[in-house]
Every structure is written in C-alpha cells, then in structure tokens.
Design a protein around this nucleic acid. Structure first.
Length: 881
RNA sequence: GCCGGGAUGGCGGAAUUGGUAGACGCGCUAGACUUAGGAUCUAGUAUCGAAAGGUGUGCAGGUUCGAGUCCUGUUCCCGGCACCA
C-alpha cells in the first residue's frame, strides 16, 4: 500500500490511495506525479498529521490552567518545562530548534500523563539587530518583517505537533510585553545595592535617609557612565564585548571609543551569582564557565607612594607574599595618573606609546602576547615593605579594565613580568623558594607556584598561604593595603543606539535623568522612515525630534535596550501572559514557584548562552527577588544543553557550505513524527552529532512497522485481538518497555527509550496475536515521541479519547519476572559457557551446573582450582592455574 | 598557555555504573515474495581463522577473580577562556 499526496503543492493535500499490487498502480502513480520518490509514503501522515494538529488546537488540548482559571486545580503538582525561545529570523526554523523542542515536548507530554499540571510555553525573542539590518536593506519596517517571520515560525512549530499552550504565546516586541520589560528596568533603576544586607533595595530608602539626588545616582543599579565601548559605525550602535566577534566576522567595522552609556551594576551580584550556582542542577561545565566568566580572585590591594608626588598608586595582587620581590611597577597606558607622573624627558616616548596602544583593540593586544612592549615614565614608586624606589613603566600587558589598571611587577614569580623584565633588563629578585628542591640561583624562568618565603624580611620561612595572610595583616595595620576580592566580571553595557529595541523609560532635564511614570508604559518607539546608521554615535531615535522633545522642556532618552532585555524575564511572563496590571500575578508566581531555588523545572537550550543570557537572566531574577517580586532566588533549576547538530558532512551547517537541512523538507518527505523521532534517536541530547538522512528513513520505517502491526492494507489487522496476553515473553517485553521508556524520559535518554520501543514493536510484528490492550500501552508510551501516528492508530482501533490525554501506563512488576536466567560461566575471567538456570540458583547448584559443562571442563584441564567467584544471577567465575 | 568535554564495528550509538562489549538503527551480504523494487519479510554482519580458538573499547602501564567502566602516564579531536596581575 502506498499513499500519494501532493506534498509539494503547499495546500493540504487530499491523499489518494493506490494499491500497487498490479500494473495499474504504477500507471496511476506515473500520471499523478512526476517523481515517485516524492510521493511514496509508508503511512498516510500527510493526511493525519494536520488533522490531529487541528484537533489539539481547536480543543486546546495543551492549554494549561493556572490560578484564576475556572478549571484550575491547585492540588495538582506543577511542572514547568521551558525551551529557549527562538529569534524569528527570516530563514525559519533550523533542525537544531526541534532537537531541544522535541525533548521538552516529550517531557511535557510525559509529565502531563503522569498527572502534573505542565506549563510548556513558546514565544519569540523578536527584537534585535538582524531585523533592523533587514529593514534597512528592504525598506520594510522591522515590525512587518518580524510579524511575517513569527508567523512562519509559528506555522513550522505547529507542523511539528508540539504540545504548547498557544494561549500563552508571547513576543518580546508586543507592546504589552515591552511595558513590563520597561517596568523591570524602572525597578532596577530605582534600586541600589545594600552591601550590608547583600541585596538590592529601593533608592527611596536612601532618600528617606537624606541622601542627595547626586549621591543616589552614584549607586543606582542602572546608571550612566562614560566608558570605552565597542562602537560600530556601519551598524550604528555600540556592542557588548561578547557581540563584537560575531559582527566583525560578518564584515562590520568595530572600533573602541569612549561614550556615555547606560550600565547595569551586575558586578554587585558577582559573589551571589557564583555561590548560588551550587543550588542549581546545571551541567558542571556550564557552572564552571560562569564561575570563570565572573572570575573571582582573592588577594590584596596595596598602596604605593610615588616619589616626589603627593599621590599613591593602588594595585591589586593575588600574591601579597611576593611584595619584597616587586622590582618595578606597570600602569596601563590609559591609566589616569600616567600624564601626571611622566617626567619631561619621557613625555614624548610615553605619549607615542599611548597613541599606538589606543589604535589597537584588545584583540590586537592579545596577538602581541609574546612580545612585551612598554615605556618608562621616568617616575619611581616606593615599595611599602622596604622603601626601595622602583621604576614605574607603562605597558599594554596591563589593562585598565581589570583591578586598578596598575600592577606591582614581581618578575621572579610571574611569567609576564619575567618576560618584560628580561626584555628591558629590569632587576629580578627571588622571594619564594619552591617546594621542589631546585637550585635557587639557576633561575631561567618565572616560578609562579607556592613555596616558602625568602629574602622577604618578616615573612622568611613562611609557606605561601601564611605569608599572604601575614603580609595583608602587616599592610592593614599600616594602612598601606587591605584584603580584597577582585572579579573579572564588568558592569553590563545596557544601551544600544538602534531602532528595533525597547526605548528606555527615561527622560532628561537639566542634565538629570528621571523615570517616566508607570502609567506611561509601554513607551513605544515612534515610526521612522529611515533607520540607516548616520555614522555618528547618536542614537537613531534622536531623529524623531517630536517624540524626543516633551512639552515641559525635558527630552526623552534615545538609547534602546539590548536584545537580552526581553529574554531576561520571559519565563516569568508565560506564567501570567495577559496580566495588564502586573508583570505576573502574586497567585501565578506563587503557584509556578516551589521550594526549589529555581522556578523553571527544566530548561533546555544551546550552550551558546552559557554566560550571557543565562547570567543576565539570573541577575534580573535576583533583583526582582530582592525587591520581593518573585519568591525563588533563581530562574532555572535544571538546565540541559542540547548538542549541536552538524551537517551530513560532519561540519557545522551553514548556507555557504550548502549542508543545511530544512525541517519543512523533512516534514513533507517523512512527516513530523519521523523528524521528531529521528532527532531524539540520533544520540544523547547533549552530544554534538551529524545529521544522516538515512537515519530519518530508519525511524520512518520503524513508525511504518508500528502502523503495519495495526493495519493490513487499510483495515485493522486480524492479528489485533481484544484478548488477554497469553505469551509471557511478549508480556514481559511490553512491561519492560513501559518501565524503561518512563525511566529513560526522566533521564532525558530518549535514544535508548526509542530503541526499547523498537524492540517491543518487533516483538509485536513477530507475534501471532497482538493483544489490543498491550498494543495500546505501547502506543501510549510512544505518544509523547510520535503523537500524530499514535493518535491516528488509536482512533482507528476504536479509541474514543485522545492518547494525549491518557494516563501513563504503569508497568506490572510481576510481568517482568523471569524464571530462568542465563548464567555466565567464566574460567579466569573469560567467558566459556552460558547456562540456562533457575533465577535463584544457589552457589552449590551453580557449581554443579558449571562443572557439568564440557566447554568449561576443557579449559580446566590440568589446572588447579584456586578460587570461585559467584555473583548470583550473573556470573560464575572459576579461577584456576 | 589555562579550563572543560570526548575517543567503542564501515557509520550514529548501547552497555544495569566493576560482571556476557557492540543493544537499537543505518549500511552491507544472502535468500523469499515479485514483471519490477529505492517496498516488505527472513537470516547474517567487530576482527583474524576452514575450524577449534585467538584478538579486540585512542596509546602505554597498574589495581582486580574480572576493567569500555577505577588509578597513573600519554596522544589526538571538539568547545570555552585567553597578558585577569
């Protein structure tokens, strides 16, 4: 039997059944279609997949009842399973999307069948630079292209049969969504970080204490600062550090320049962002990535006086124990003190060097890793421990952005300082003897390790850890330094000069910024005819003069927020997506949170967001938590990263390589169920794996076999009988399948679950009689994986209800029991025989059976038995020599 | 350079966590049904060997009655960070 449909016509096809048992079929085929391969379907999915999708949609099968809904049952346990929502690009869904989406769909459907109230929503991260670039190219407003792209994504997602609650669909560009993104910004803007309580609090508390407006602006979590930023003249915006590479690789110019920008004080949360990772069920690798990104190091800050100047230089060091070995100092070329301390005869050299550095990016600096460069300022600092005068240099291996932008150089024990000292013939003084007994005078490289202090006055003889502590105490007692913890994490550059983003809900008057009233939210960007970058750092919204100028003489902030803003909190909005009075109702927030630290039970998405989205979202969530708007301290309890799907050639899919697989093509050729199943059967979810079209055919054949167990031609197979299962082996296979599939879904081990269902299907194929009840149990556990096919078979077998609403079948422990097992007999650990024995055979009986085996005796010939190892039910090992 | 992850048949991958290596699928081989097969079904398929049997989880050692799994060293591949003081 073959099904024919006009798969490529784009309209829902009416399938024509043709039986190919004679030549008529082929002639019919030939005239109905140009190429046979396009139209041969082993089961009629082009007919039933859209049918079931339409039914789920019209019956709202996957609608989730929440607090406030009439059918809400507060007694049901909640389960929140979330996908990283897509950026709706013009090229549509990539096969990487359905990988994670199918995984969460299986878990969501499974949890529903297990009796959970499952929240499994979908939406669109629809602001962003690419939409604006496209708008510039085509002259169409980004709202139009974005809407079209969303529509295409929605169609594709629906064609895959995902059980989303479409009533909760959101897009970050929706005005109602923008309202709450801006509202959260105002909460951040209206807060400061209280160091005592280690949390954010409203700035109104400071007002009450009599702080001035200027003082408050200094501590807000959202603030304006002049910082060197990455600016792209042809994109017309600044970029975050992390975005620079991406746009550069697309051929855009990116340069460094100081600009006045909005920043968010994420650095205040550094310690909490590290500590609270421990409460989360995330891959250790991702936790480590975040920890390294935040980059905590413990040490001390030390004050160095400058000879002949009434000023000091502060440095940060993780090795205060090596202070006696500091033989020179280095300032970053941009350090504000450089101009002041440089002596007249060094000025021209210093300025030339500064200029050379300014034209280099950080990346170029990195390339010069090996070759140290620098210039002497002519000034000297005084080492606080021994009052020695040490020269002050400037060099680009010291960066302004970390620590204080100045270091004490200890060339004997730091590789970079060593190279620099060698290059410029600066003194090297050894102050730590390593634990290994190396000769102290034959030093030919830096020794950064721990050891015992030497040449260090009051520290001599102390191991590094103690020497550090003692030195800090010494510095603190003389007010020349303090214990200090330093983080690599920088404050978050939060403003962009683009059009297609949320405007800041801020106005300016007399050089001061003000929040606009909540009642004026959402503040939407005005329509513009021209989004082209002007080549200047002026935000594009500046062009909308009428919008910018307000009647009271104040002006609007013209920067917009970065794309991350919308994705920082979307998981909250899904809980209560249409609430116009609040970000999320108290009841919804309360119900969808539980005792675990993270609100979302399972979050699946790509590794590319390991440090950006996942760090930003945690930060926003913590601010909202501190201010009492949410009751969990973390957003995502369990995180799983799906592995990248490579092209058939084993490399990353890309248009230029021509190895991109379009999900639409797979769906029309093999059906949505085959695509879903294949993506899950490829291998472990987290693993990187190449696409194989032959593999899609393989799972498609499996689904066809399931179909053929039920149907012969187009009638119900005579093998299907509504009788008790009398074959214990078949019954055992079915119950093993019920057990394993459930356990494997819990472990997200979908590939092995599918393999078990294949085994079960093969057993049904070979059985003389297929008991209806057991077959439907298989269909039920297969339903989360292949929902359309299973619903269709179930309905055709007379099922009145939908499998999607079935309860998960429980396996029967009794059906799993085997009376006979295979006992493996080994001689010296090598397999010699397998014996069918009773499942609870004891050692004596096992021994008798083993020694009755000719194969075993053959290998024992001429040997003395030394030992016998018997593992009941598994192994009988004879050790002999 | 530093930090992670990985290496199992021709291919994607299994292996109850120390107990029969290669489940399941792809591919391949042979057969059956066919005018036909890129459909379906049956059997086989790590490797050497005619067989008995030997050898096999990147490589070299070690622990153990027994190692893909644990320990030590090492090579290669992938990802991240990269002068972070």
């Amino acid at each position: 039997m073959v099904w024919i449909s006009e798969a490529d016509s784009g309209s829902p096809a009416v399938p024509v059944r043709v039986f190919l048992f004679n030549g008529v079929g082929i002639r019919k085929l030939a005239c109905l279609s140009q190429t046979m391969s396009d139209t041969r379907k082993p089961f009629p999915f082009p007919e039933f997949e859209p049918k079931w999708q339409a039914r789920w949609e019209s019956e709202k099968t996957f609608r989730t009842a929440g607090p406030g809904d009439a059918d809400f049952d507060p007694g049901k346990p909640k389960y929140y399973v979330l996908d990283m929502f897509p950026y709706p690009s013009g090229s549509g869904l990539h096969v990487g999307h359905p990988e994670g989406y199918t995984a969460t769909d299986i878990v969501g459907r499974y949890k529903r069948m297990m009796g959970f109230n499952v929240l499994h929503p979908m939406g669109y991260d629809s602001f962003g630079l690419p939409a604006e670039q496209y708008a510039i190219k085509t002259g169409q407003h980004p709202a139009i292209t974005t809407a079209a792209n969303i529509e295409n994504f929605r169609r594709q997602l629906k064609s895959l049969g995902f059980g989303y609650d479409w009533d909760r669909e959101i897009a970050t560009t929706d005005p109602e969504y923008v309202r709450w993104t801006q509202w959260i910004f105002l909460q951040i803007y209206g807060s400061y970080f209280c160091e005592v309580e280690n949390k954010a609090k409203p700035v109104t508390e400071l007002e009450a204490k009599g702080w001035t407006r200027e003082q408050i602006d200094e501590v807000r979590l959202a603030f304006v600062a002049d910082t060197p930023v990455w600016w792209s003249p042809d994109l017309g915006t600044v970029l975050a550090n992390e975005e620079v590479e991406e746009w550069k690789s697309k051929g855009h110019i990116v340069e460094r320049r100081p600009l006045r920008q909005w920043m968010l004080r994420i650095t205040k949360y550094s310690q909490r962002l590290i500590d609270e990772l421990d409460t989360l069920d995330w891959p250790e690798g991702i936790k480590l990535l975040q920890k390294n990104w935040i980059g905590r190091s413990e040490g001390a800050s030390v004050q160095f006086e400058i000879a002949d100047f009434d000023t000091e230089i502060e440095v940060f060091t993780t090795r205060p124990d090596t202070l006696f070995g500091a033989t020179y100092m280095v300032l970053a070329p941009e350090h504000p003190l450089v101009a002041r301390i440089t002596t007249a005869d060094q000025t021209s050299a210093v300025e030339a060097y500064q200029k050379a550095c300014a034209s280099k990016s950080d990346l170029d600096r990195g390339d010069l890793n090996k070759d140290k460069s620098g210039v002497f300022t002519g000034a000297f600092a005084i080492n606080p421990v021994n009052d020695e005068q040490i020269p002050i240099w400037i060099a680009d291996y010291v960066m302004m952005g970390y620590g204080t932008g100045a270091i004490m150089a200890v060339p004997a024990h730091d590789e970079r300082d060593w190279e620099f000292a060698k290059r410029f013939a600066l003194p090297i003084k050894m102050v730590v003897a390593l634990d290994s007994n190396q000769p102290l005078d034959a030093l030919d490289e830096a020794t950064p390790g721990h050891g015992t202090a030497m040449n260090s006055g009051f520290l001599d003889g102390l191991p590094t850890a103690e020497a550090k502590a003692k030195m800090i105490d010494w510095l603190e007692s003389r007010s020349k330094g303090t214990r200090r913890i330093q983080f690599k994490l920088r404050d978050w550059l939060f403003s962009r000069q683009r059009y297609w983003g949320e405007p800041f809900p801020i106005t300016w008057k007399d050089g001061q910024h003000h929040a606009i009233p909540e009642s004026e939210l959402p503040l939407l960007a005005p329509p513009l005819d021209d989004y082209k970058p002007s080549g200047t750092p002026e935000p594009i919204l500046t062009k909308a003069a009428d919008w910018v100028r307000l009647p009271d003489g104040s002006t609007r902030e013209t920067n917009t927020m970065p794309q991350w803003a919308g994705s920082c909190w979307y998981y909250l909005r899904y809980c209560d997506p249409t609430n116009n009075g609040r970000l999320i109702s108290q009841e919804a927030e309360d119900y969808w949170s539980d005792e675990k630290p993270g609100m979302v039970d399972l979050y699946v998405g790509g590794t590319e967001h390991a440090v950006l989205h996942l760090l930003y979202a945690r930060f926003w969530h913590k601010v909202l938590y501190d201010l009492g708007h949410v009751r969990t301290p973390e957003p995502f309890q369990k995180l799983v990263n799906q592995g990248l799907i490579l092209g058939e050639d084993g490399v990353k899919m890309s248009k230029s390589r021509g190895n991109v697989v379009n999900p639409d093509d797979v769906v029309s050729e093999y059906g949505a169920d085959s695509l879903r199943l294949y993506e899950m059967f490829m291998g472990p979810l987290e693993q990187v794996k190449p696409w194989q079209m032959k593999g899609v055919e393989g799972v498609s054949r499996f689904l066809a076999r399931v179909w053929r167990v039920a149907f012969e031609e187009d009638t119900v197979s005579s093998k299907i009988q509504d009788v008790p299962c009398t074959d214990p082996a078949l019954l055992r296979t079915v119950h093993e399948t019920l057990k394993k599939v459930g356990e494997d879904i819990e472990k997200l081990s979908f590939n092995t679950a599918i393999s078990q269902m294949m085994i079960c299907t093969n057993a049904f194929t070979q059985a003389e009689v297929v008991p209806l009840k057991e077959f439907i149990q298989l269909l039920t556990v297969l339903n989360p994986f292949a929902p359309h096919l299973t619903e269709e078979i179930h309905a055709r077998l007379g099922g009145k209800t939908m499998l999607s609403e079935a309860t998960w079948p429980r396996y029967d422990e009794a059906a799993l029991v085997r009376n006979e097992i295979e006992l493996v007999v080994q001689v010296n650990g090598k397999l010699r025989d397998r014996l069918m024995v009773s499942k609870d055979i004891d050692e004596e009986a096992a021994k008798a059976a083993a020694f009755a085996s000719a194969k075993v005796m053959e290998h024992l010939e001429g040997k003395t038995i030394r030992k016998i190892v018997f593992i009941p039910g598994k192994i009988f090992n004879i050790v002999a020599n």
